[in-house]
Design a binder for these strands. Structure first.
Lengths: 323, 323
DNA sequence: ATGACTCGCTAATGCGCATTATCACCAGGA
DNA sequence: TCCTGGTGATAATGCGCATTAGCGAGTCAT
């Protein structure tokens, strides 16, 4: 329509009419005019095949994003991801097709995997399959994990929350308030995020000289002699407060209860727990920023974002009287 | 690695080794073996370029999907959309890049529009630009709108909520309880969904012989002599109940307040309004189903889903005493 | 007039796949 | 021997773009 070659259109479209290749202003305007009239848009697929960027970022989650159960978990991250993608002019591809078998969780790699359609990918999930990570690395798929991940045949690019620092800070606070015997309730392993919390705890008690008590569940808590307890799960925190009150133990005066941010099981409470805030939205934003960086210059950037401490009202100075 | 041609691999990979084309079992197994060993996955981009199908469904929204303000509105639809896409083995592409200018709403068509990357597109929004709709139609972009839309140079494929029927049913209920003067508070125009509500109202009063009073806002309500009021917005409903109580009017005994499902302004209330439920999730599901259908056989399917009436506690028989 | 150079554009190629037409081979019948 | 038919594979092509080498025309200096 403009009486020029496909090449010329391509050049005009990509603003490559500078330096090496030249297109006269006249021709350029003619092409642009026709493009405007017809609303022509280059096929992104062909574009991508010819090895140019798509401006599409993949978002992989092991569970559905929207349903209520997982929405609470994923939502804050996604707010940040969407914000940042919008600013970067990128579209988001949700890999909803990844479920092969009903009842199972999604899989990153399947025979029909489309991760490669995206320029890069943000990985979201409480835990991530180690094999998947290793394969992403070895196949050179550009990606960034939201949440710290251990090496998987190589360093994994991630943006995580600085749990060790946050938990340690809480322990130090408790110690400063006179607590000498502090319990940690939770698995402390499985996911990196849990291991990190436990590490923060261990470091904290070591640094303050307090005595740390590890408990897999809240069961032995009241016999442990602890005056403060840190719990991974919000739900556990609620349960502990409940149980304490039933035993006539005042919270926080007789038992301080700190919550370490995990919120797997949805639970309602209006208790204003002392603990910290996981900067989920910021993590989402940063993940996209790092992904952009990876796309441009490669590498495996790793970053921990600080968690803001929440004052709350479940931490109090230890009582002086012996229990 | 298997000592065969690219063609053979393609055939094996796509299970095309039947009927027309034949591959010996021996060769097939050898190829499959290598595929398993190497974890080879066909490049989805090239695949799409070659056969013009992506199994990617676009989701266009005029505002960001995730942030809290719009999340309440979009979320239920998206649950349905994701569910259905997962079942259909499709990925979802969120057009987050559509925002060209900060502060403005997104646009479907821009110079960089990537809608065509998806096989088809689901359109989500309180209102949709008529020009955009017309262009989608004329450019033959397969799409389905969530929410009924007026023709735009042709019939627009949609799945909507049957507001006329639901509103009419509410009017009839009110009339059956003795209400003879019924008010409608709201714009009743602008978006199709509002026009549909108003139409249901008009039909309802006509059918029952009641007297309909239209009010653009709640202002003149208490002078109108209406014993029952229908309001588009939940927020308005809350405000009306509040105002009524301040005037010493009991709800529902002296004034029935029915809410027509719109929930633009987020508002907290524990009033159990009589009204109806918009089947948002089901609309999302159905939209994807219709889109699939459009992709397969074209056409412009249009469908209205019934709204379930909510009994609630803000509708009561009219008092016999004259006011 | 001839070479050197610039300007503006295009032909040709490749990306990785799906698809189609075709080919080499062997067996069996005339 | 020649033909037919079936079997199992492949060479070639195109999808729509980006990229690169190169071409014709004009300009300028020698």
């Amino acid at each position: 329509m403009a009486g020029v070659s496909q090449t010329t259109v391509s050049l005009v479209l990509n603003g490559r009419a500078d330096g090496e290749v030249r297109i006269s202003l006249e021709t350029r305007d003619r092409v642009l005019q026709v493009i405007r009239e017809t609303g022509y848009v280059a096929d992104p697929v062909a574009r991508r095949l010819a090895d140019r960027r798509n401006r599409i970022l993949g978002v992989f989650t092991y569970e559905a994003v929207f349903p209520a159960e997982s929405a609470d978990f994923y939502h804050p991250f996604l707010v940040g991801i969407e914000e940042c993608a919008e600013e970067a002019g990128c579209d988001l591809l949700l890999f909803t097709s990844a479920k092969v078998v009903e009842g199972e969780r999604r899989r990153i790699f399947s025979s029909e995997s489309r991760i490669r359609l995206a320029d890069g990918c943000v990985l979201l999930g409480r835990t991530v399959d180690r094999g998947d990570l290793a394969r992403l690395l070895s196949e050179n798929v550009p990606f960034v994990s939201v949440g710290r991940r251990d090496d998987a045949g190589g360093p994994v690019p991630y943006v995580g929350a600085d749990y060790p620092r946050a938990v340690r800070a809480l322990v130090e606070r408790a110690a400063a308030l006179g607590h000498r015997r502090i319990a940690y309730v939770g698995a402390g392993l499985g996911a990196e995020s849990l291991a990190d919390r436990l590490r923060g705890f261990t470091e904290g008690v070591a640094a303050t000289g307090a005595e740390g008590v590890r408990l897999p569940s809240a069961d032995g808590l009241f016999d442990s002699g602890a005056t403060a307890v840190l719990t991974e799960e919000l739900a556990d925190g609620v349960a502990i407060v409940q149980a304490a009150r039933e035993r006539g133990l005042a919270v926080p005066d007789e038992l301080s209860v700190l919550v370490l941010g995990a919120n797997t099981t949805p639970v309602h409470t209006d208790i204003d727990f002392t603990g910290f805030h996981i900067p989920r939205r910021e993590m989402g934003r940063r993940a996209v920023e790092l992904l952009t960086q990876v796309l441009e210059s490669g590498g495996a950037p790793r970053e921990l974002l600080p968690c803001e401490l929440i004052e709350g009202s479940t931490l109090a100075p230890v009582q002086n009287e012996e229990r």
